[in-house]
Each structure stands twice: as structure tokens, then as C-alpha cells.
Amino acid sequence: MFDKKKFIFNLIVLAFIFTPLRISAKQDVLQEEILIGLIPEQNIFKQMDRYRPLASYLSEKSGVRIRLTILSRYGDIVERFVSRGMDGAFFDSLTGVMAVTKLGVEPVARPVNLDGTSTVRSYIFVRADSRINSVSDMKGKRIVFVDRATATGYLFVIAFLQEKGISDINKYFGEYFFTGSHDSAIYSVLDNRADIGSAQSTIFNMLVSKDPTIRKELHIIAQSEEFPETTLCLRKNISSDIKNRITDILLHMNQDPAGKEVLKKFGALKFIRAEVKDFNPVFNLAKRARVDIRGYKGER
């Protein structure tokens, strides 16, 4: 047996050593450069595979070298946005709200999924053969969350439970743990490593589209209202020229054959303009969960 964390860390380091080289070798004529952060929605390898073609396309079209960096976890994401000198990030709905509130980042664009939606929901799910059908059946069981700094993988569940009279997850559940990514939370319930899970609908549906048996094995007990899809937000003092170029390319890439190919790999139909008001449902969710966004760090 060996240290799994160390092994994964080494793989990540290797991936990151080589990734920028590949992009920069192609783009060595580019002068400007921006660093975009990615949240760990899925495992980081899948996440890099998904975003790398998009970064290359944006670099080529905008003349601005786009470098990607994975934020290893959701918590402290706002602090790390500053400390790592990021120019923007694809935030999920809760980290987006935190970044808008604390840093004043500007939402630029968000993808439209293949089903035509540009929103996500939180699902609370169990194995279909688990005999868990209600909150009362969950008492003493094992629940898995994604991260405290996610709306779909934590905050909705907290709000949902509070509305059912459960205010302390420590007392109500036999065990709870965090997986750090949505797909991992789903696999935990599938494998019976947890009894109840919560995750983002788009990742759930993506796994189901690859393996339809998953839909039969999992039973969705509750789902949230709609929250905005992962949104590209740029820091407030980035040059307006760069911001406009990137926004324009994203909003029109569905009209370009090469852009369409990239969107296909990304798993989206197009990008649409994003605004701060898109995050209103998340502000409401935070109130329901009795969370003050200004002081919330989402730490485990």
C-alpha cells in the first residue's frame, strides 16, 4: 500500500508541468497572458480534459494566452483567487456568489448545456434499493457531500434539512464526509460507501448519459430550484479590452465551425451572457440555510 494522496499529487504535478508547455509552444507569439481558475466539479483529470480545448481556442482567437489552473478544492477559493493572482475563474453558483460579494468579480458568460438549460440543480439521492424514501429514513445513515463551498453539493441539503427540522447534521447522521467533487459523491453512493449523497444535476446527468444503468440504481429524493451554471467571472480591474475580446469570442463561438467543435468537446451548445442578478437564487438559498455569505468561507 502507498500514500494515495501523494501519488495523485504527483500525477497532478506532472500534468501541470506539461500542460502549459504544450499550450505555450503553440502560442509563443502571444504577448498578453491571463490565468483562469477551474473548480474541481469532476475529478481534476476530467476537468482539465474538458477545459483545455476551450482555453486553446480562446487563446488562438483572442491573442491572449490563457493559462488554466485547477483549484484543488472549493473552500477558501476566494482567498486563493487573490493569492494566486488569478484573472478569472469558472465559478460554480456558490463560489461565484462568494467571489462577487467579496471581490467584486464580474460575471461574463456561462455555458448552455446540451439539453438547452444554462442552470443546474442540486440532487439529493440514494441507492434505489436502500429503502430510504424520506428524511426520517436518513437518521443514523452515512451522508456524503461535495464541499461546504458548493450550493449543489452541500448548501441546498443543509437548507432542505433545516426546513424539515434537522439543524445539526452531526447528531442526525451516523457519519458524514466530503468527497471534493460531484462525480465522486455519486460514485460513493453507487458503491454503497455512503447511503445518501448530494451533487450537481449536470454532473449526475453526464454520468447517466455515459452509463444509463446509473439512473436505475439511484433514486432522487429531492431537487433544488435552478442555480446558474458554472460561470466565467473576471476580476473587476482586468483590462476592458481583454474582457470584451474574451466575452465576444465566447458568445459567438457557436457560429464558428472550429468553435462548434470546441463546444462539442466541452459539452455545451453555446455560451450566453452572465450577470450578477443570475445569482439571486443562491443568495436566497444562503438565507434559507442561515448562512451569511460575507463571513462564509466554506471550510470543512
Binding site: 500500500m1 502507498f2 494515495k4 501519488f7 495523485i8 500525477l11 475529478n43 483529470f45 476530467k46 467533487s181 462525480d183 465522486s184 460514485y187 460513493s188 458503491d191 460507501r193
Partner: peptide, 13 residues
């Protein structure tokens, strides 16, 4: 298989 690497509770090397 990256899913296995990330999900495994134990890895034998």
C-alpha cells in the same frame, strides 16, 4: 483508469 485512481480507498503499488 482515473476514476479508479481517484475513488480507490487503497492503491497497491
Amino acid at each position: 483508469p482515473m476514476d479508479l485512481v481517484t475513488e480507490a480507498t487503497k492503491i497497491v503499488q
